[in-house]
Each structure stands twice: as C-alpha cells, then as structure tokens.
Amino acid sequence: MVNIVFKFFIAISCLLIFRGLLAEPLLDGADFDYGEYLSGQCLTCHRNSSDEGIPAINGAEALYIAKKLILYKNKELENEVMQLVAGALDEEQIASLAIYFNSLEK
C-alpha cells in the first residue's frame, strides 16, 4: 500500500515538474509592453481598488486571466462587453494582457 502511494506521489511530482518545464501554451508569445498598451482598454472599467459592479483583476494569475478571456471569446461566459472585448483579441494579445495584469500589485 505504501508502495502504491509512493509511486502515485512520484508520478504526480513528475507530472508537475514536466508541466512546469513546458512553457504554458496559453501564454506563448506574451509581450509585456503590448500587454501594457492593451490594458488601457480594460482600465476604462476595471480598477484595482474595488470589485463593485466590475471585478478587480490586478495581480490575478496569468493563466486564470488567459483562460477567462478565452471563455469570454468563445461566449462560454456571459457578459456582452467582455465577449466583445475578448472576441477581438488574438492569442498573443490574450497572453500579453495576462502577464501584464499578473505583474500588477493587488
């Protein structure tokens, strides 16, 4: 039994290490400066100091931001404004925004 648990632990560890070694495809081609420029479009509505009405996104995990944007782009998440904004973003732009907002202080 201990052996099985140990093997499982090793397998999971290897998987995590392997995953870490691979660059996250969703964040491929991220360009920080481009993200900073594109963030202007988000900052008309999103602000850091409050979640009232519209969520604060500064400092969120890059992968989380990228996945959310893709869900809006594919209209799998509700909200017309976000579907519109994300719908006009390509992969590079999504990755750039994700790493830029991740870099900001919460």
Binding site: L43, T44, C45, H46, R47, S49, S50, E52, G53, I54, V81
Partner: peptide, 14 residues
C-alpha cells in the same frame, strides 16, 4: 446597472 456603476468608477479612476 451595477456594471455601469463599476464603469463610472473605473473611467473616472482612469
């Protein structure tokens, strides 16, 4: 409507 309040606060902060 609540989203519009968020936007007002967002754009005036911006």
């Amino acid at each position: 409507y609540e989203e519009s309040i968020g936007w007002y606060n967002g754009i005036t902060t911006d």
